[in-house]
Write a protein that binds this DNA or RNA. Sequence first.
DNA 1: TTGTGTTTTATTGCCTCC
DNA 2: GGAGGCAATAAAACACAA
Length: 326
Amino acid sequence: MAPGMLYGGAGASNYFDGVLIQKQRVMSSSTTTTTPKEHLGSLFAPASSSFLGSSSMVSFGGVNGGKRSFFDSFDQEDNEADELGEYLHQSEKKRRLTENQVQFLEKSFDEENKLEPERKVQLAKELGLQPRQIAIWFQNRRARWKTKQLEKDYEELRNRYDTLKSNYNNLLKEKENLTAEVFQLTDKLLAKEKGNGQLALCDTRKNSDALPKETVADPISRVEMSNVPARVHKQQQQEDLSSAKSDVFDSESVHSTFIDQGDSAYVFETEQSELSQDDDENFSKTMLSTANLLGKAEDDDYPGRSSNLSYFGFPVEDQGFGFWTY
DNA sequence: TTGTGTTTTATTGCCTCC
DNA sequence: GGAGGCAATAAAACACAA
């Protein structure tokens, strides 16, 4: 039988039909009084390959030229008719490849997951299988590999998402801390504006216990607590209150938010939770501008941070996570 | 033993490439 | 147009709990 006759690809007669046809031919070709087993046995000579187990459904005929004999596994003492009947029955069922065959194929797949025709024939010979079977095995193996790869990629993306989300949450906390700090500083400026400013600012470091614990504990805020008041204090020694205010809050964005409403001036009156997305974005920019002015944007404690980048290296404006879905 | 879910082997139809 | 690859699917083999 010509190679590929049983496995003709799409539209070809199916394997089982081919097997039956082959058997019929064997039977009918006999011109002497031999048993069916003798006919088949002579057609499929014993295999020389060590991989030729008994589980393959295509262990007979085909391109391997009878390298493997299905009957090798038959007990000579058994009833021949029953054996043939069982064989005919089993041959119509799917048979799994042996462990050795699969191992060999796996090894081959690891080397190259594509199958050239020469390699296919070579593998078929070595394993006592049909070339078509080898092709099918590689095809299915590639499909399994692809599925696994997709799962792997998904896991990786998910991990990256979790990391980004965690970083985002950290930034939110950082933002809250900065907001609280701005409130603190604003209060002090206002107090100073009312006449007690000098003393209040000079005592800031001593009075840092009065600040919210979360703010003080935050590494960023610790930098601010030690640096910012000193700067303000220095300015106070050189300038009057109004010029100090305009220097510290030099940013245009801060100016737009810091609106002097007489004695009751307040910065960032709007609650964070009430901010629209645009407002929230502006708020982030404002906070970072303020942070820059306060001197921590390129602090040695936070290498790699620039004025418009978070500690994690991506623009604050790019923190839209809404597109991530599971 | 049996029902059920998973894995493996194989087919089919469509598509691409030469 | 034929060969080969791939996705979808069928069906047998297998694993395992009840």
